[in-house]
Design a protein around this nucleic acid. Structure first.
Length: 274
DNA sequence: CTGGGGACGGGGCCC
DNA sequence: TGGGCCCCGTCCCCA
């Protein structure tokens, strides 16, 4: 499938349901080395390596300021441009919404600055990149190249034709350290909701989750008054406005708005063998 | 059984 | 190389 939809679209022209002040990033990054057992709770929450500046958190979960004061840092998109609807992926008769806002993560002009601590050696860094770079020295002690032992000291992983890294938490293998690190996040769940403690592998998953606390619904349907916290849910909702259902049963030709509905339909016996 | 919303995970691309 | 982000898709629950 073409990935043209990945072209950045920072649509400032339609920011329907949320205020600028609500856009603060509330991601709480915890270094990957953060032992899962030490994920913050109400007792050890100060162990977090950074603290969101969101008023919501300050209200819901007052925190001391053990680190440096958090000041907004401009990490906003390079420029907010008018939505170019003509470049949007087309669908039946333009039924598809503009999907203007970024997915589960609307543009966030105000992003909190974070202080990143390595909990292994207590060093602090001003950026996740810096911390990640530092942590490489730690990670390399734990990532286990699949190359034969005799090669691991003399041959860079990328030289190996086979997957060079395997996850220490599961049997999955990866050919690059980056891919492995990404995967490991699904085990370490470094992004922790300070409200409920739920942990996520990626910051934007956390931001989407946080909306379940705030009630923020940035993604509005242009056909009705409904709004959604998750763009995927809006997309699914838009199908309810469409006369053409995307998913068709191969046996009875009945169409459904969602794949899952088609699956359930088939599971109910319409499509033997499927 | 179907339709729909809520919440979330992961692959893959861009910067 | 890593972070950010988009889309697709799934699961669960309820009406």
């Amino acid at each position: 499938m073409p990935r043209s939809f990945l072209v950045k679209k920072y649509f400032s022209s339609k920011k329907p349901y949320y205020k600028e002040s609500q856009l603060d990033s509330q991601t709480a990054f915890v270094p990957e080395s953060f032992p899962r057992a030490e994920l913050p709770n109400h007792n050890n929450i100060s162990a977090l390596t950074c603290h969101p500046s969101s008023p919501f958190y300050q209200t819901m979960d007052p925190l001391p300021a053990p680190l440096s004061p958090i000041t907004p840092v401009s990490l906003s998109p390079p420029a907010l441009r008018p939505l170019d609807l003509s470049s949007s992926p087309s669908s039946s008769s333009g039924e598809e919404e503009d999907d203007g806002e970024r997915t589960s993560d609307p543009p966030s002009p105000d992003v909190a600055e974070h202080i990143f601590f390595c909990l292994r050696c207590s060093k602090s860094y001003g950026s996740l990149s810096a911390l990640s770079h530092h942590q490489t020295s730690h990670h390399l002690q734990h990532l286990s190249p699949l190359a034969p032992p005799l090669q691991t000291t003399s041959m860079p992983p990328e030289v190996s034709a086979r997957p060079a890294f395997h996850c220490k938490h599961c049997p999955k293998e990866y050919t690059s350290l980056g891919a492995l690190k990404m995967h490991i996040r699904s085990h370490t769940l470094p992004c922790v909701c300070l409200t409920c403690g739920k942990a996520f592998s990626r910051p934007w998953l956390l931001r989407g989750h946080i909306r379940t606390h705030t009630g923020e619904r940035p993604f509005a349907c242009q056909h009705c008054n409904r709004a959604f916290a998750d763009r995927s849910n809006l997309r699914a909702h838009l199908q309810t406005h469409s006369e053409v259902k995307k998913y068709q049963c191969g046996s009875c030709s009945r169409t459904f708005s969602r794949m899952s509905l088609l699956h359930k339909h088939c599971a109910s016996g319409c499509c033997p063998g499927s």
